[in-house]
């Protein structure tokens, strides 16, 4: 049984932990609001762009002279997974979930006999990926210095990936990130970004409506200009969604931690009070029996 003094110290330490988690929760909540509005204001652009790109992609006939970002390299052997994770922990299962989704995708590909390599954005995925897939991390982009993801960073990442693609280091690229659905729900997602998937055949209504569109310069040239931009925008979107998801997840985690600390303080206080009372009772009994003996 812990002594009264030890219990008191323990309660004090849980209390100060609770103060920290409470403060972190409030900071995360404030940052979340900002990140969320950033993520939401970025959505129209990326949605429009990927609409346009996939409708264009479904309209041209892919031949050997088409841009390689859409035609692919003709092989599907080597896959690159661009894994965007957070830079910091203390956010519940946020990073774990992204990494798990990426690992599932990677294991599936490996089971099909493909080669998989990783390009990491953010710090947190590195230890796990390094342990499970040693030597398969081909590159890393450090985002720990930046507060809010900016489009310039996304462009830098995209430029590096496209350069690797052009120099033939991989055939297919996937982007793994966490889709921000709400504060409570972040959905780890793995999307193919290179080559671009043409729009599914079922939205023939949309392509029928755009059949009369006049293109200037022609479809292929527009597409060639848009494809690299599309990669950058998809990455930018992933960074924004990640940021919002991270703070949402951190807020939830810290809220739980604060509540758990509260429960623990209650439990320890009860124990402390009982023990204090027991000590007093024992003392009284001793005094009384001492007086009786006289």
């Amino acid at each position: 049984m812990a002594s009264l003094k030890a219990l008191k110290i323990r309660i004090g330490s849980v209390k100060s932990t609770q103060k920290i988690t409470k403060a972190m929760k409030m900071v995360a909540a404030a940052k979340l609001r900002r990140a969320q509005s950033n993520a939401e204001s970025g959505r129209p652009y990326s949605a429009r762009l990927s609409d346009v790109v996939s409708s264009l992609a479904s309209r041209i006939t892919v031949g050997p002279q088409s841009p390689r970002l859409i035609a692919g390299t003709g092989a599907e052997q080597r896959h690159l997974i661009v894994l965007a994770s957070g830079d910091r922990g203390l956010a519940g299962a946020f990073n774990t979930n992204i990494v798990r989704a990426a690992r599932r995708a990677a294991d599936e590909l490996i089971a099909q006999g493909r080669q998989v390599s990783f390009y990491l954005v953010g710090r947190k995925a590195r230890p796990v990926i390094g342990r499970f897939y040693p030597g398969q991390i081909v590159g890393q982009f450090d985002t720990s210095e930046m507060k809010n993801p900016s489009y310039a960073e996304a462009q830098a990442i995209a430029a590096e990936i496209i350069e690797r693609f052009e120099s033939g280091q991989f055939d297919v690229a996937h982007l793994a990130y966490s889709n921000f659905r709400s504060v409570l729900a972040q959905e780890p997602t793995v999307d193919q970004i290179i080559p671009v998937r043409p729009a599914a055949a079922n939205d023939s209504a949309a392509s029928g409506a755009s059949a009369a569109v006049e293109y200037e310069p022609d479809e292929e040239d527009i597409l060639a200009a848009l494809l690299p931009r599309n990669v950058a925008v998809q990455i930018y979107r992933a960074l924004l969604e990640n940021q919002a998801g991270f703070y949402g997840s951190q807020m939830t985690a810290m809220d739980n931690a604060t509540r758990n600390a509260g429960d623990m303080i209650n439990r320890l206080s009860i124990q402390y009070n009982r023990q204090r009372q027991a000590a007093i009772t024992t003392e009284l009994v001793e005094i009384i029996s001492g007086a009786e003996a006289l």
Binding site: V52, S210, A212, V213, E214, Y215, E216, P217, D221, I222, A225, L226
Partner: peptide
């Protein structure tokens, strides 16, 4: 400012896309 020259758009313009 389109890549092939400036163009004006008013309501009812025909579907068109350019860089």
């Amino acid at each position: 400012p389109g890549s092939e020259g400036e163009f004006g758009v008013m309501a009812g313009h025909a579907p068109y896309m350019t860089t």
